[in-house]
């Protein structure tokens, strides 16, 4: 019984690790170590509820735990996020590939958002969730989730204006 449980759990984690890790990176604004810690905590919690959620939606459970933990841990002082007027790093041409440069720019822009705004934007535009599920995942009213996402996108428009060029 325990072996079966461990086998199914390992198979799920191995299959979804890359997607979940990218989600964690976006939720943390590109902090790789913090993303790994958050994903580790979420997967440990998943292990203890695996018999309950294995047949339903284990990825939704991990997503909820990740999003809430990211919003909660980002308020801790030792993470030390400080908003600045200008992006701290820009992609240097020639030393990175275009994909890596875009990812770095995107993560730097996401880091400028508040944790709730970042979580709402990521859940809406990366996880493709409707407003109701975003609100349910974050544990807030639908209007609040919609407001967070709208403000986050509005700020990203300014921050990523040179990356995503408007349609002329």
């Amino acid at each position: 019984m325990e072996q079966t449980r461990a086998g199914e759990y390992d198979a799920f984690v191995a299959a979804r690790w890359s997607v979940l890790f990218h989600l964690a990176r976006l939720l943390t604004g590109g902090d790789r170590h913090r993303a790994e810690d958050l994903l580790q905590e979420s997967l440990v919690k998943l292990w203890f509820v695996w018999p309950k959620v294995a047949d339903e939606a284990p990825e939704a459970y991990v997503r909820k735990v990740l999003a809430r933990a990211a919003a909660r841990s980002a308020r801790r002082r030792w993470w030390g996020e400080r908003p600045v007027a200008e992006l701290p790093e820009t992609a240097a041409a020639g030393d990175m590939s275009a994909t890596v440069a875009e990812r770095s720019r995107l993560e730097a822009a996401l880091a400028q958002l508040t944790p709730r705004q970042r979580a709402a934007v990521v859940l809406r535009y990366y996880q493709d969730l409707p407003d109701r599920q975003v609100a349910q995942t974050l544990g807030c009213p639908v209007g609040t989730a919609r407001s967070h996402a709208a403000r986050g996108v509005a700020r990203l428009r300014r921050l990523l204006a040179d990356v995503i060029e408007p349609v002329g």
Partner: peptide, 26 residues
């Protein structure tokens, strides 16, 4: 309820989020 009429920036943002995924094996 929210993606019925995404504008250009929202579509590009979605593509950017999906396209920048890094393959990290378990």
């Amino acid at each position: 309820d929210h993606l019925d009429r995404p504008d250009h920036f929202e579509r590009q943002l979605t593509l950017l989020m999906h396209g920048t995924r890094e393959q990290s094996p378990f």
